[in-house]
Computed example of a mutant assay.
Amino acid sequence: MSTSVLVEPVMEKSYAGVGRCKCSFWFAVAHDILGVLIMMVGVFGGLIIHDLFIYAGAIIIFLSLIWWVFWYSGNIDVPPEELEDDVGKMKLKNRRLSRVVRRVSSRLSSRIRDSLRRGDRNNSNPVNVGTEMGLSTIYNTTIQSPSREITRDTLSV
């Protein structure tokens, strides 16, 4: 017993005017206007601390760029064909490249891991465990640890 299901194509809603992210747009415009007003008070106000107002206005205008980036990135349209699931729907032309990159990455990480493991085995010296050792500083002086303190043994895995 099979039933047919009708799937209608999804049409994206077109946005007129400032786009989808109206809040980010108006925050950006408000920061720009506020920054210009504060800067103009510093330039034409005749105050003693005019440079403070000029710098504060410039900083507020600079921070409005954050809202402009939010607005712009929120209005980027991606076609539905490019919105694919990452798990099983890789494009054929990218499949070979991703296999090569994964293979190189796994080989490189296994080499690094093996070299670190070999380095730990060669550097672990059980003769020095529990003996008194000095600490060297950047001034080439040695500080001896008193024998009353607890000594820490290195753990080799």
Rank of each mutant, 00 (worst) to 15 (best):
L116F: 11
L47P: 00
S109Q: 11
L34Q: 07
R117K: 15
P79V: 04
T142H: 13
E8R: 15
G42T: 05
L116I: 14
M90W: 11
E149V: 14
G35K: 02
I66C: 00
R117W: 07
W71P: 01
R152E: 09
L92T: 08
A16S: 14
E82W: 06
E8G: 03
E132N: 13
L47M: 12
Y139W: 10
G57M: 03
I54W: 02
S106W: 07
G134R: 15
R113P: 01
N140I: 14
L83M: 08
R99H: 10
G130H: 03
P9M: 11
L97H: 13
M11P: 00
S145R: 15
N75V: 02
M1H: 04
F44V: 01
K89G: 04
D86E: 07
W71L: 02
A28D: 00
N94P: 00
R113T: 06
V104D: 05
V87A: 12
F70W: 02
P126I: 09
S145W: 12
D86F: 09
R95M: 13
S4Y: 05
S145V: 14
A30S: 14
R103S: 12
T137N: 10
Y72G: 07
D85P: 00
R103V: 10
R111D: 00
R111Q: 04
D85C: 04
G46H: 05
S73M: 06
M39W: 08
E12L: 04
G42W: 03
E84F: 06
V127Y: 08
I54Q: 03
P9L: 13
G119K: 14
I61E: 05
I143W: 10
S156E: 12
N128P: 01
T151N: 08
D85M: 02
P146W: 05
K13P: 00
L63R: 08
N94G: 11
V69E: 00
S24R: 02
P146E: 12
E81W: 06
F25Q: 03
V69I: 00
G74C: 08
I38K: 04
V127T: 11
F27K: 12
I76R: 15
G74V: 06
S106G: 03
T137W: 06
R99L: 14
M90F: 06
K93C: 06
A16P: 01
F62S: 06
Q144P: 09
V5Q: 11
G17E: 03
G88M: 04
E8N: 12
R107G: 08
K13N: 10
R148L: 14
